[in-house]
Structures are given as C-alpha cells and as structure tokens.
Design a protein around this nucleic acid. Structure first.
Lengths: 218, 218
DNA sequence: ATAGAAGCGGAGGAATTCACTCCGCTTTGT
DNA sequence: ACAAAGCGGAGTGAATTCCTCCGCTTCTAT
C-alpha cells in the first residue's frame, strides 16, 4: 500500500473554485432532476465546461456521495431528535413535517432516502437506519393513546412520498401548499379528536392550480 | 362541403381487427407511460408494425380522444352520482375513493383529468366540468357538519394526486395499499370524530416495500 | 519573469430514443 | 384472379446523453 493516489497534491486555486461551483450547481440540478440528472446540465448550471465536471468527478457516484452524505446524516439526526422528544406524538408530527419538507425540496434526496437510490455502500440504506428510530416514535405515540393503532412504520415513507409529490407539482406556485394535506393527514392519524387542526395555508387559487399543473415536469 | 372524407368506406376486415388491437394496446401503454407514451411502444404491445399505427392514427390526438372520451364522461357521471347521494359526506367519501382508484390505475387519464393534459377541444377541461359538481358535494358535507370547514374544492385534486402517486409506486406489489392512506385522509377530513376508521388493508411488508421502490419507473 | 505543470472549455464521437415515412409484399373483397 | 387496401419494419432525421480528447489558458514555484 504505497501512497494513496487521492489527496496527494492540493488542488490549484482555480480548480478548487470550480469544484465548489460544480457542487453548488449539482445541488440545484439534482434537487430538480433527481439522481439521473444529466452532468451536462450540471456543467451548464455551474457555468463550466463538461470536461471540468468529468475531470473532478469521474464517477457520478462521487458527486452524489459528496452532496448527500451530510444531508442524510442530518436527516437521521432529525429522526433521533424527534424520537427523543418528550411527547411522542409531537415528535412524530414534527418528524413527518420536517421530513416531508426536506424531501419535497430535493428530488434526489428523496430517491435516496425512500428508495435504494444510492447504490453506494457509503450511505447505504438510510431506511435501515431510520426504521428503528421511527419505530420508537410510533410505539411511543400509540402507547400514549395519541396515534391510531393500525398505523405502521412503513406508512411513514408513504406519507412522505405523497406530500413530497404534492410539492413537486405545486411548490413553485405555492410553496407551502403541501402543508394543508399534511394537516389533514395528521388529523387522520390521531386516535380520536374533537376539532380539526386549522390548516396553516390558504387553498390554492384556480389560476395557480392551472399554472402548477401546466408547468409540471412530467 | 362535399362528402366528408371520414367514414367514407368501411375498413377492410383485417384493418378493423388491427385497429382494435391497437386501441387495446394503447390503453395499456398509455395507462403505464402517460400521454407522452411512445407510439412505437403501442405498436410493439399490439404486435403490429409502427406503420399500421401511424396509418390508422396519423395524429396522436386521435388515439387519445378515442381512448379517453368515454372514460372522462363516465368520470363526470361518477361525480354527479356522488353529488346526488343522500348523505353528502358519504358522497364525498365515495367520490374520493373511486376517483383515486381510477386515476391511480391510468396515468394518462390522470394527466387529462388533473391537468390540461389533453389539449384537445373535444374533452376540454374536465376540471371545469367537475369543479361545480364537486363544489356541491363539499358544501353539502360542510352544511351537515361532517366535513371540516377549511377544506376547499381545489384540495380534491390534491388528494387524488397524492393517492394516485402512491399507487404508481406500490400498486404492482400491493394493489390496494393506497387505501390505507385514503382512510387516513378521510379521517382527517372529518370535522370531529371519536374513533379512527380501521384501515382496510394490511401494511406493506418490508420486502414488498423494497421491491416497489426498486422497480419504480422514473 | 518564466517554465512547466495543472487545469480548462467545449467540439464532437458513440449510443440511445423517438417520430414518422416509404415501399415491396400480403391480404381482402368482388 | 386481380386491383385496391393494408401491412411490416427498415431506415431517416432530430434530440439527448455520456464521455473523451486536445489545443489553449492559468496558476505556482523558483
């Protein structure tokens, strides 16, 4: 094992600058187009040549890893924080809300967290890290009598998928609209309740709806 | 206006046969791939040459119109039936359930009903036909004190989008899974309630979840 | 200041995918 | 049995994507 070929020489100043620009651009493009985003699109967004992208990140995997490792860890942390909250129901509510927000904002992130999007070994199976934590939240909330008994751990990603999808379509036009449906879902998750929780956002307006659906990508 | 060039001569027997095969195939392919489905894929599914498809349906629009006009009318009828039900809340529940099912089963249909997918004038704006009918349902259910006051007509397509999306991902593996979330949403729509409605389907099993997400298209 | 290493842009090759045409052969109806 | 109608699918052209290559530019160390 002679000298490791990575990190041998520090990058030249302009190269370091470009590397940052590529990462920033990739964050935007991957969030918009998902894990299959074209690297040509990243180059364009970054304002550099495609060659530069491929020189710095010969494998798409490197770019993905660099971009999402921290984000995933922070997501697991979020789950842990929520699971540690005093009131398990409040923890679950906060988790569903924050998780849906983060996933709604970043398509690639969603593909990684919800599916086996990243085939990498590095950040493998965020789901497997999350399942036990979310499981604790759910058991706690059921034990307290707040959460309906028939709710299951694997319903959590379903909620996230639904709400994130909503944000895909309407986010440009009404950034928080998905929270209306989050409110409905959360009210639906309670074992029993008197009043409905007021929705935190106004309904979408007809013209905005039309615009949202028209410009929808796929 | 001499003789109209359409329906001039009856199709030859083999042509009529192939036309049917193409329509059947197109139903499958459009349901799966949406309105942008490749006509080559339709030909393959039908087991005919692409030439045959283009000869019979020179404009994609013709194929779409032929396939979906009846389906759309039947959908509007559904809404009318539901709006006419004695108990407005039950009508709304039935509509949400049946609408989500139909849209979950057919991606192209969903694109037409929810968005301005069909640019055609023939079946134009199913939304505009639906809005007043659905509006009546909602007002009725609110007046009866069953539906939460802050629910809006334009929240209805949002519910449909969410649930149909769920079925896109999980339908192959667990055909009725989306009904779990429908139950949650419906419970969330009640103004107040004691018990949660029991979910009508078992949770997805971990291996099925993995399979569903792995094979997900797009 | 300058030589040489490091880095850059982006044209362009190869592969894929889709819409749509064309024409030699086959099937049908009379 | 023969003309008209229909058929298949190879093939053209236009996009789109990945990725390489190489002449030119910029940086850094001396």
């Amino acid at each position: 094992m002679a000298d490791d070929p990575k990190d041998q020489r520090p990058l030249r100043a302009d190269a370091r600058r470009n590397r940052e620009r590529i990462l920033d651009a990739a964050a935007v493009v991957f969030a918009r187009d998902g894990l299959e985003a074209s690297l040509d699109a990243v180059a364009a967004e970054a304002g550099v040549g495609v060659g530069t992208v491929y020189r710095r990140f010969p494998e798409r995997e490197m770019l993905v890893t660099e971009l999402f490792t921290a984000k995933i860890d922070s997501f697991v942390e979020l789950a842990e924080e929520c699971a540690a909250m005093e009131d398990p129901w409040q923890g679950l509510v906060r988790f569903l809300s924050e998780a849906s927000r983060r996933q709604g904002e970043d398509l690639a992130f969603r593909e990684i967290v919800l599916g086996p999007g990243a085939t990498s070994e590095m950040m493998d199976m965020p789901r497997q890290r999350l399942a036990p934590i979310v499981g604790r939240m759910i058991e706690g909330a059921k034990a307290n009598g707040d959460l309906r008994e028939d709710f299951d751990v694997l319903d959590v990603p379903l909620v996230e998928i639904m709400l994130a999808r909503l944000n895909d379509l309407t986010g440009r036009v009404s950034a928080d609209l998905w929270r209306r449906m989050l409110t409905v879902v959360i009210d639906g998750l309670r074992r029993d309740r008197d009043q409905a929780t007021p929705m935190p956002v106004d309904p979408i307006r007809p013209l905005d709806y039309a615009a949202a659906i028209t410009n929808a990508r796929r």
